[in-house]
Design a protein around this nucleic acid. Sequence first.
DNA 1: AATGAATGAGGGTTCATTCAT
DNA 2: GATGAATGAACCCTCATTCAT
Lengths: 200, 200, 200, 200
Amino acid sequence: MKAAERIKEQKREAILRQAQEQFATHGFEKVSVSEIAAGAHVSPATIYNHFGTKDNLAREVIRQLLLSLLQRYRGIVESELPFPEKLVAIVFDKAEIAGQYRGELLRTAYEGNQEMRELVDNLWRTEFNRLTEDLFEQGKRQGHVNRDTSHEALLLYLDIVRKGIFASSAELSATAAHSSLIRELNFLILYGLLGKEPGR
Amino acid sequence: MKAAERIKEQKREAILRQAQEQFATHGFEKVSVSEIAAGAHVSPATIYNHFGTKDNLAREVIRQLLLSLLQRYRGIVESELPFPEKLVAIVFDKAEIAGQYRGELLRTAYEGNQEMRELVDNLWRTEFNRLTEDLFEQGKRQGHVNRDTSHEALLLYLDIVRKGIFASSAELSATAAHSSLIRELNFLILYGLLGKEPGR
Amino acid sequence: MKAAERIKEQKREAILRQAQEQFATHGFEKVSVSEIAAGAHVSPATIYNHFGTKDNLAREVIRQLLLSLLQRYRGIVESELPFPEKLVAIVFDKAEIAGQYRGELLRTAYEGNQEMRELVDNLWRTEFNRLTEDLFEQGKRQGHVNRDTSHEALLLYLDIVRKGIFASSAELSATAAHSSLIRELNFLILYGLLGKEPGR
Amino acid sequence: MKAAERIKEQKREAILRQAQEQFATHGFEKVSVSEIAAGAHVSPATIYNHFGTKDNLAREVIRQLLLSLLQRYRGIVESELPFPEKLVAIVFDKAEIAGQYRGELLRTAYEGNQEMRELVDNLWRTEFNRLTEDLFEQGKRQGHVNRDTSHEALLLYLDIVRKGIFASSAELSATAAHSSLIRELNFLILYGLLGKEPGR
DNA sequence: AATGAATGAGGGTTCATTCAT
DNA sequence: GATGAATGAACCCTCATTCAT
């Protein structure tokens, strides 16, 4: 019995891995269940036994993604890094790039399903935001961040930059070698278009 | 004969208008050619006479979008606004929000077609970038922008922030009323997370 | 244009004929749209262009059946036949046998669709019943039918016998040759199990 | 070992009970083997171990049904009721209503299987008919039934009325309260549309 | 040049059935 | 003997695309 369960679990994960990969590469609509099945060396019917619906499969992929994202995020926020480096780490966290397609996927999953909405709301609007507030509290306490700036605005800016980086990830990875460009980009994110580095 | 040509042109534009609208609202995959045809009071076959392919239609929609975008952009860059306001105008240009779905559309169009790729590359990487360089040259000349920062990095940052704002446009429009939040966001974009406004 | 419309109408009718035939022979669930399509020398997609849904197709089949049934029925009731022969004609009307499967089909169509329900209710409970009442009024006036028997009961009995004959049509047609058996059956329907023919 | 066999028998019967119930409620095609399995707290594979095929299961259900029907029928025929009441009891025997769906089931089972055909033929055309002949012999001996009417015709009429009542069972149960209607219906079955009750 | 009808290819999904455990 | 997992085949349906008119 143990062996059978292990095999089942392996298939389930193969399916999830394939789905995650293909959705990320080609988008939810462009990937057929048969393709995922083929990629996971499994019959389409097996996918339905496991997840019931293509939509459900997508939701499960998102759930896993969000959870792993949260874990990485918490790891960074609670690490011993200096505050500015935490910011940079968060903004560039490669794992997030896997979430590039979250926009599209989330819309599909989020709009179609009450349960999913609750999961995302709970996770994102509670856990993520709480962690981010902790982070900026640190930043303010250590004098890096302007005390007058509201948490709301900080959160929004961080989110925008992250999303923009996902959306640009193709170009970014193309120029990844130009580490000097990345350094400059970091600088712009931290000090803005018009800002000047304190010490300069 | 003039009349016949005018009618033909009107149909073509009705199709493009419908396509642009529906793609933006429901996404490329979710809109069928028949739906566009119905919306434009035209037979599906007519769409094929004009554009040959659904993908081609999408490409034409994008082409128009890019061209109009470029025009608006040029308008802002060559306007008489003070430099920081130009930046803000560009970043928030509402028209861009109409292009929110470009991500999805572009993928479809860009990946599938050599010609399209060339168009986008020419337009974006040439025209847009040249305009943006002009802009930052202004900024540097007027002392707003650090001379040491490369144009490449400035372009990238600007692009990231714009894309991030598209991706967040739902949340943004929800909180549009909170103009104080928007003001703070502007500040963060211009002066960064750690920066301090010169005069403060 | 006329030719095209004629061809379309021919295809539509070929589909309906095939559907009616196959549904009657094998039942709604056992017949696939592809089979009907093959039988009508048409692509499955064409069936969907014409009827939208397998259920809808079934509904259309029923609608036609009911309407033709009503017409035959009216023909009999309003004919010049003597009253007892009208009864026999109605009970045995061969066309009704085509409706053998109405039970199953009707359930599917009736339960699933408001519009259908209204059609059936209107046709059956209004037209059919009115005609039947006319019929029995004749019978009572001519002294054939007991004035004390309610129309409701007469209707019900007639319906039961008709449905029973559909259900037994296989056996009946097997013994159709035995016209003496049929004559006896007529007698039983008219005078019952215990009844005695007036003149005997 | 006795215990093991008893358990096996219990499962078999649970499966049959579930199958009978679900087939009667939703029809053969609409019920999946998995649903029956779930209802009987058993794995689908167990059903296949016991019955080999969904069709086989249906046949077994029918076999049981026919046998129990036969028993009830024999009970009525051999009872001490007066003849006319026996007729009424048979015609309205509620158990038959459970067989309402026999039409559909029988078609599936009967058409698909030689063995089944033989069973039904044996049971129905032998046992049932013999009992019915006994019944009408009683009726004739007691002077209720016309001696000139052939057994064949009496059998056929009885069958027709019974089948018609199944087919109308929905409407009948709807008006079940109107016992006066039922009384009238009985009268019509016994004395026909044109007949007159002897004593009246 | 425009159309309406027709279709091939493919998509999501279900289910009777099998098989290793 | 019983099971849960897996699957092949089929089903209903959609849609980009073509073609006769």
